[in-house]
Amino acid sequence: MIKCVFRVRFKKEAIGLHTFVWFPTTGLLNSSCITTVFHFSFFIFTLLQASHFPLTFGKTRNMKKISFLLFAASILLFGACKNDTKKITYTLDNLQFNLEGPLFEGPNTAQVPIQLDLAKITGIPQATANQIKSVKLVSCEINAPEGQNFNPVSNVVLQLAADKVDMTEIALLNPIPQSSKSIAPQPKANELSTFFQQGNIIVLLDATLLADQEESLSYTGKLSFELEVTN
């Protein structure tokens, strides 16, 4: 009986909480964010309803505490949602890295200039640079042309360059396994949003050759970035 009373009371608290969060924020946030807050609150509430909480002593104080926790958690979520960001995967495909001979033992550089169209990348018409909150390289792949491999190359470093940002290493593979036709340099955890905010970037491939050679080398690259953008 007592348990039942508390359940009812608790339900009231939870409903109060929903009301408290729901009404003031409806007009401020888009539905996805509010839904998250609501669902989170409801999830906690359901857990409590399942009586996993020790509600058998100090009941009233517990109720207050739990309500407060729920409220705080929701507010935290509310804060996290405030700027309402979305995640986008953007792939730079078919990058042509041409290392023109004669090539020398040691690193040789190929550069590919890229013009970034923010509207196209973000799917937001008239997207501005400051809407890009975070950019990380998540995967990287470089392929040798048909019938060739990476045997002349001992290691590769991929870098990004742009006018107003310092050159940054974004991925590397060292050493390259023998007879590889396709390699996947390990992305670094660098934050690259400042490059994307520039608009024009240059992707550099520094390929370390094991020996001098007259012939040019050509590889194709694919870089996938994960972007966090605000609407």
Binding site: F104, E105, P107, D166, M167, L172
Partner: peptide, 15 residues
């Protein structure tokens, strides 16, 4: 990870 890369070819001046 770059300590076994050759010194020759290293980009020592940047930006």
């Amino acid at each position: 990870s770059l300590r076994n890369a050759p010194l020759k070819g290293y980009r020592m001046l940047k930006d």
